[in-house]
Amino acid sequence: MTELTQSAVGAAPARPPRRRKPMSTSMLPRRSTLSVLVFLVPPLVLYGVAVLLPIVQSLFLSLFSWDGITDMAFVGLDNYVKMLTRDDVFWTSFGNALGYLAICLVLQLGGALLVAGLLTALPRARELVKTLYLLPAVISTVAIAILFQRLYALEPVGLINQLLAWVGLGDLQTAWLSNVQTVLAAVSIPEGWRFTGLYMLIIYAALMAVPRDLEEAARLDGASWWQIFWRIRFPYIRPVWITTTVMATTFALRGFDIPYLLTNGGPGQSSELLTTYMYKTAFVHTDYGYASAISMFIVVECLVAVGLIFLLLRRKDKS
């Protein structure tokens, strides 16, 4: 019986090898690709309608002279030539915008990094501290403007001037929003204070993801707290830091509401930003073509700033 079985098995024809199905060129299955498209297309359409389309419309309108009522007159690049060569207020606003950006970045990124670092060492009440720092980001802009108007006031004496009097620095009391020397910093501080908590939460989440084993090993090797931060923590959170820097930079370059509510660009043009100047040009002077040219400059300015950030950080990575 065994011999018959072996002979039958030996006589059976060999089965042909199974052909493997060709690998799909797509990284996702068909259903997964369809799902991604279903969820991705609506936001892209919304982004195109809400962001890209107004930019294209502003670019088109910047080539015309139009007061919103009469017929549009094509002027080509004259609005841009006027903006760059014949408008002193534009360049004053541009310089103020750079100063506004610098103050906001120092307060938002520096303050967020400092508070986030302190939170990682706080044994209790972390949630309470995070909530308190995040509150300004959800408060109405008008409420923040009114609050800082009261703080900066000279008559009646606001809290800042009152504190200066209490510590014996009464000679430094001034109308912070009316003084040409202090008004730019005065309108920048509320914006920096407002979003510090938001960036603090982002950086804090990144710091909590740093492996503790690396920090403990560095401490055992005798590393100082600065060496641990600069050599271990900061390189680990660098991608998050880049994203936060881009967010803070673009938001500051587009800052409008708080400076406009506090001073409306005054006194003179001491706190005039590109955004407030664009608004006045469009809705006060009804020169929509020239205002559109200023808006296109703001778009290009944001793109250049983001490009410089990535360029500088890429050079540091290579070095």
Results as ranks from 00 to 15, higher is better:
L261M: 15
I237L: 02
Y290E: 10
L63D: 03
W241R: 13
V56G: 14
V246I: 15
Y133P: 06
Y204R: 00
D213S: 11
L128E: 04
A305Y: 03
R219Y: 11
V284T: 12
G117C: 10
L4D: 01
G255M: 09
I203L: 01
R238C: 08
I144C: 07
V284E: 15
A209Q: 14
R124P: 03
Y236K: 00
L37Y: 06
T85S: 14
W226C: 05
Q149N: 13
D213L: 01
Y288T: 03
P29L: 03
L308R: 00
P16H: 06
W226A: 11
S140C: 11
Y133M: 07
Q162T: 03
F297A: 15
R126E: 06
N96K: 12
E215P: 04
Q227K: 05
L84V: 09
M208Y: 04
V167E: 07
Q227C: 03
L313R: 15
Q162P: 06
D171E: 02
T286I: 05
V240Q: 14
S319K: 13
P54M: 07
E301W: 07
L313T: 12
F195G: 15
V75W: 04
Q227S: 05
D87C: 09
F283A: 12
V38Q: 09
L177I: 13
T70V: 03
I202Q: 01
D213A: 12
R233E: 14
Y204A: 01
G192S: 04
F148L: 13
L77I: 02
V300P: 05
V210C: 01
Y47F: 08
G197T: 00
L84Y: 13
Y260C: 10
F60S: 07
V9L: 09
F195I: 14
R86D: 09
N179D: 14
R30S: 15
M208H: 07
E3P: 04
M296I: 13
A112Q: 04
I258C: 15
Y133V: 11
D78Q: 03
P43C: 05
A293E: 07
V284C: 04
V115L: 01
T245M: 15
R233G: 11
S178L: 11
R212G: 12
V240Y: 07
L172S: 07
L119M: 05
L98T: 10
Q149Y: 12
G192F: 00
A293M: 02
R219V: 08
M296Y: 09
V246D: 13
E215K: 08
A8Y: 06
A205Q: 08
N264A: 11
G117T: 12
D287I: 02
A282E: 00
G170P: 01
Y277A: 09
L84C: 06
L198Q: 06
L63S: 09
A248P: 10
D171K: 07
S295N: 14
A137R: 05
L122N: 08
G265P: 00
M83A: 10
T275C: 11
Y204P: 00
I55A: 15
F60W: 03
P156R: 01
S65M: 13
L114C: 13
L118Q: 12
T244M: 08
E216P: 10
A223V: 01
L147P: 09
N264S: 15
L172M: 08
L77A: 06
E155R: 09
T244I: 12
V51G: 10
L169M: 04
S65T: 13
A14N: 13
Q6F: 11
L132I: 08
T281F: 05
V36C: 15
D213K: 04
V306R: 00
Q149G: 14
I55M: 15
I228N: 00
V81N: 03
T25G: 04
